[in-house]
Simulated assay, not measured.
Amino acid sequence: MNTIELKRSFHSLIDSINNDSLLMNFYDLMKTRTSTKEGQLWNRLTEDEQEELLMTLEESENPENLISNEEMKHKIIKCPFDDL
Rank of each mutant, 00 (worst) to 15 (best):
S60F: 04
L57F: 14
K31V: 13
L45V: 02
D28V: 03
N2C: 06
R33Y: 11
R33D: 11
N2R: 02
P80T: 03
E49W: 06
S16M: 10
E47N: 14
L53G: 06
D28K: 08
S21N: 07
K31M: 13
Y27W: 15
P63T: 04
E71V: 01
E58M: 12
L22A: 15
L29Y: 15
L22R: 12
D48Q: 15
K37G: 00
Y27G: 11
N25T: 08
E51D: 11
L13I: 04
F81R: 05
D83Q: 11
E70N: 08
M24D: 14
E38P: 00
T34D: 10
Y27K: 13
Q40A: 15
N25C: 08
F10W: 15
D83N: 10
L41T: 03
R33F: 06
S68L: 06
E51M: 08
L23T: 07
S21G: 06
Q50N: 07
L23S: 13
T32Y: 05
H74E: 12
K78G: 05
T36R: 11
S60P: 00
S68Y: 05
I4Y: 09
M30D: 03
L13C: 13
H11C: 06
L29K: 14
I77T: 05
C79K: 12
N19T: 03
H11E: 11
S12G: 13
E71F: 00
H11M: 10
E49A: 07
L29E: 13
S16W: 01
D15P: 00
L53Y: 09
C79E: 07
K78I: 06
L22H: 12
E71Q: 10
M24E: 11
K78W: 05
R44L: 15
Q40F: 14
D82I: 01
I67F: 08
H74M: 08
E47K: 09
L41H: 14
T3C: 07
N19P: 01
L13W: 14
N43W: 02
D83C: 04
K75G: 08
E61T: 09
S68M: 06
L22I: 12
E71M: 03
D82T: 03
P63N: 02
L23G: 12
K73C: 07
L13F: 14
M24G: 04
E71I: 01
N25H: 07
N62I: 09
M55T: 13
E61H: 11
L29S: 10
K78D: 09
D20M: 07
M24I: 03
L41Y: 14
D20A: 07
N18L: 02
D15R: 01
H74T: 09
I76M: 12
S68R: 08
S60D: 05
K75I: 07
E38G: 03
L23F: 03
S16F: 00
K37I: 03
F26L: 08
I76W: 04
S9K: 10
I76H: 02
L13P: 00
Y27E: 15
K7T: 11
S9P: 01
S9V: 06
D20N: 13
D20L: 11
E59T: 07
G39I: 03
H74F: 05
E64K: 15
D48V: 09
M30T: 12
E59V: 11
